Amino acid sequence: MSAKSADGPATVEVVLVKAGRTKISYPAELLADDGTRVSVRAPWAGEGVRDFGFVRFEPGDVFTEHYWRDRWYSVKEVRAAGGALKGHYCDVTRPAELSGGRLVVEDLDLDLWVSADGTDVRRLDEDEFAESGLAARDPGAAAAAVAALDELDALARGAGLGTLLA
């Protein structure tokens, strides 16, 4: 279903929660919501430049973000201000909840980066995940998070993340 109205594009507030606290929130244009997947677009919401060494997120970058109500991850297409694809940043999260104009996801620390050409696939923050204590607090959620990272990694190295976004 389209998210546009007679008044222009609909917006939502994306809220990323980590360890019970809001890590970041930002407005995003609601592109689509089919009842399972919610897609939004927003400019880079961080402060200044974030240089990971293998990619830089910076003012002017545009993120097209895809969240699922039934999957334990989100996939974010990252483009430079000029439109060139930088790659895909995937967050392992609990399934997304959209209510009252707020799209809320809980970050579970695990991440995956896939370069634009698909040749650089990196699992990120596995040490943070291990230190988070989630495996002891909520073994089911921890197992779902690891399975989600494995699924994303296999897709990235196989058919590609585009199969999720079609």
Rank of each mutant, 00 (worst) to 15 (best):
A148V: 03
D61W: 13
I24D: 05
V78D: 02
A80K: 05
G118A: 02
G20Q: 10
Y67C: 07
G118N: 01
E128N: 07
E29R: 14
V49M: 12
E47C: 02
A45E: 10
A141I: 09
A130K: 00
L31P: 01
E151G: 10
L112H: 08
F63L: 11
L16F: 03
A42I: 03
L149A: 06
A3Q: 12
S99F: 07
G35A: 12
E106F: 05
A6H: 10
R79H: 04
L85A: 06
L164A: 04
E151D: 13
A141V: 15
E65I: 00
R71S: 12
S39P: 03
G162M: 00
D34W: 13
A143S: 09
F63M: 00
V40P: 00
V12W: 00
P9R: 02
V92M: 03
L110M: 08
F63V: 04
A141T: 13
A145V: 08
A42L: 05
Y89H: 11
G160I: 02
G101F: 04
Y67N: 07
Y67E: 05
R94S: 14
T11N: 12
A135L: 05
S5N: 14
L134T: 06
D91T: 05
P9N: 09
A10Y: 04
E106T: 14
S25M: 13
R94E: 13
W72C: 08
E13T: 15
F54C: 09
V49K: 14
K76L: 12
R21S: 14
D109K: 01
T36H: 12
L85D: 10
K18F: 03
G20C: 11
D138E: 15
K4C: 07
D107G: 08
E77W: 05
S132M: 04
L98E: 04
G140A: 06
D34S: 15
M1G: 14
V38T: 15
L85I: 03
A84I: 05
Y73I: 02
G100S: 11
Y89V: 03
V92H: 01
A136H: 14
D70E: 08
A141W: 03
E126A: 14
D120P: 00
E29G: 05
A143V: 03
G82M: 09
A19W: 11
T22F: 07
E65W: 10
V114R: 07
K76Q: 13
D51M: 13
F57H: 12
G140D: 14
G82I: 02
A148Y: 10
F52P: 00
G160E: 04
D111Q: 11
S25L: 12
K76G: 00
A154R: 15
D7Q: 15
R56Q: 14
K86R: 12
V12D: 02
T22H: 09
F52T: 12
G100A: 01
